[in-house]
Design a protein around this nucleic acid. Sequence first.
RNA 1: GCCCGGGUGGCGAAACCGGCAGACGCACCGGACUUAAAAUCCGUUUCCCCGCAAGGGGAGUGCGGGUUCAAGUCCCGCCCCGGGCACCA
Length: 811
Amino acid sequence: MPEKTYDHQQIELKWHERWSQDPTLYQAEENSARPKYYVLEMLPYPSGALHIGHIRNYSIGDALARYMWMRGYNVLHPMGWDAFGLPAENAAIANQRPPREWTLSNVEKMKRTHSRFAFSYDWDREVTTCEPDYYRWNQWFFLRMLEKGLAYQKQALVNWCNQCATVLANEQVVDGCCWRHDSTPVEQRALEQWFLRTTAYAADLLEDIKQLEGNWPDRVLTMQKNWIGRSEGAEVDFTIQGYGPVRVFTTRVDTIFGATCMILAPEHAIVATLSEDLKAQAKRMVDARANQGPGDVLKDGFDTGLRAVNPFSGETIPIWVGNFVLMGYGTGAIMAVPAHDERDFEFCRKYGIDVVPVIKPVDGDLPDGATMTVANGDYGIVANSGQWSGMTSEDARREMAAHAEREGFGKSAITWRLKDWGVSRQRYWGTPIPVIHCPKCGVVGVPDDQLPVLLPRQVQITGKGRSPLADVPEFVDVPCPKCGEPSKRETDTMDTFVDSSWYFYRYCDAKNSNAPFDPAKIAYWFPIDQYIGGVEHAILHLIYSRFWTKMMRDIGLITNAEPVKKLFTQGMVIANGAKMSKSKGNVVNADLVADEFGADTARLFALFAAPPERDMDWTEAGAEGIYRFLGRVYRFATRNIGTAGGDGSSDAKILRKLHQVLMKVTQDFDSRWHFNTSIAAMMELLNELHAEESKISAAAMAQSIEIVTFLLAPFAPYLAQELWEEQGKSGPVFRQQWPAFDAELARETDVEIPVQINGKLRARVTVPAGLDKDALEAAVRADEKVAAQIEGKTVVKVIAVVDKLVNIVVK
RNA sequence: GCCCGGGUGGCGAAACCGGCAGACGCACCGGACUUAAAAUCCGUUUCCCCGCAAGGGGAGUGCGGGUUCAAGUCCCGCCCCGGGCACCA
């Protein structure tokens, strides 16, 4: 066949056209005899355009999906849209377009780009989270949680900007000020907010991390463990004269004889009983804390004048309020042991409070509290602590907690860092929370048969004030479902992390209008075999998803405890050495790349430039290199299809290389996913084919071209399909069986052995592969150059490693 | 401060179990083809030294030590870059 020029536009258009006509092309089988494989990439926010970071994420997943198909699996590979969220509201304010319209038009645009990149998604299962057929199930789940006490309302502090007159998300607070008004400090306001009781699953979430070990990246699991933050210690009541007991949490009850004051969080209930003056001081502390960015924060506090009694020592100590004590952790009150805690030390030295050491280092003396300059937090031997003196810290912690429990002023206790999930957002573009506030019945869940609570379409979004829904009387004013009294509908909407917590279940049964999904379908497809996405979701999305799964299990919907068996976190994409960002204007647009080089080139380069877990640098020049490679493949294949062939003198060599590369690529898929080296191996193969071109027989050539086609199929689907057709074959190449490699054929017959003398490379000797140590040594010693090197010297030792190297140690 | 990654040519990287450091690609330079250019093809390129040359010698994977016949890889002590967490009692 005469050589053809690689025209990516023509090839990709042609197959795009043909593939578009077959909606069943990528559908998973319903009642399949094949083993199932669920591969998933994180769903995107529909911003309007795909960039090269998306392409990288999807290229990894798609290569895997296509490979698994060819390996005989029934593959589920779906895609959807995380379609609620603030940008749609901002766009509505900026250009007067309704959020839904703006969002759906973005979805359409991005779907077109997806399609031209030929990602093998089953679009029949598409999920768009802003549509009522999806979010009604958010509401349904919310009601189930309300029934089980897993959803509840409480006063909570939110970030409030006086200029915007609205609540800000944490990400919108920059250095303590509003992102849009950088001289307006954000205030903390208490509002009634809805929460999901994630803390009910704290122990479960921590325990089940064990099931994920080995299949999730360690750092993600570590981040989750830290986030859950299990801490073992004791709670102890100190008695405040005139008030009664106040409880503190400590992990170091063994140091309690060294407690020289108690410190309360400024929000602590006792603060409300203080003088107006002191209350105002505490309030300033709370606001100041909101304005503190990360970084070193000075400790600040004041004496309340109150006194507490240490139940262990009977001593009376002062009670302070301190800005570093958090109301949200433990009991919001601590016993300060400055001698043995860095933070307490800093605070007490600043205010001249006593420092009393009570732990003797194992190999030293008790320090002097008056002169010590750093706290010592190590375990040691308890001293000056009554009957506990002389015990080790470990023993004392246990014994003292037991003592407190017997005496009724404390107990051992476990505290968690994990907090309940605040899901209320004073926003329009999110799932309406399905409850009604009745003056008689209180909070009433919307009955299931009245779901979904639809988001009204005609809403004025101004970016000011409370939730825009509060200004829609038809939405707000409803009768109570229980008693019929005029009532008010809840106007907060749900955090968009709710949407992404269970979307991958919906893919299994995306069109079900009677239930979120059919449990039988979940039983078949779950857990997700491979989830692929950015590490930025290591905590929030992936903890919420795990929580949601456990909740669904406990309401009897599913049986799996974890949603995701294996997690892969790909690295970031850097564009020409700089982090891609809108503000830098260096976001690489996927459509433009596809225009210039084609989808195949973009996909292949996204995998070639670096191993997938590492950051990769996108460069035009690099993409051009891949484009050249694909062109070489195409020209080589077209001019060699159906040729008479050469004398076959290179057949054995070529056959070996074919199997070596096939083995390498197969193993890369099955283990490390270092597709950069898989692709490099394909390039080597092509280079060798090229060099031997005239000496390959017709049969070996045909086989070579076929294998090259298979190798390309998971990575560059358009070119692979085109070559498949050029070879006179029909049907989709990615539905063919992946060819098995033959390790015997891949084995080299001769190997070049480097010979070292005293560790220095001195010669290379070619020997037949597989020679044993003695034969290898003999063969090497027979070499002239080697013989000359050891001439006249004493051979002390010879290290011969089969097929690798020989090192001769001489004197 | 703590916890993870990472540091290898001009650049992206490879070397998977301790065994030839730099595969593959980019860029550069040189050559072929061309009236010319593009495209394509072939070749050179870690550094230093000796040699007209074929060739030969030495150094080299952030820094300093160590283990070993042999270290990019293992151990000890540092430095730098990126990310995450950050008063969690």
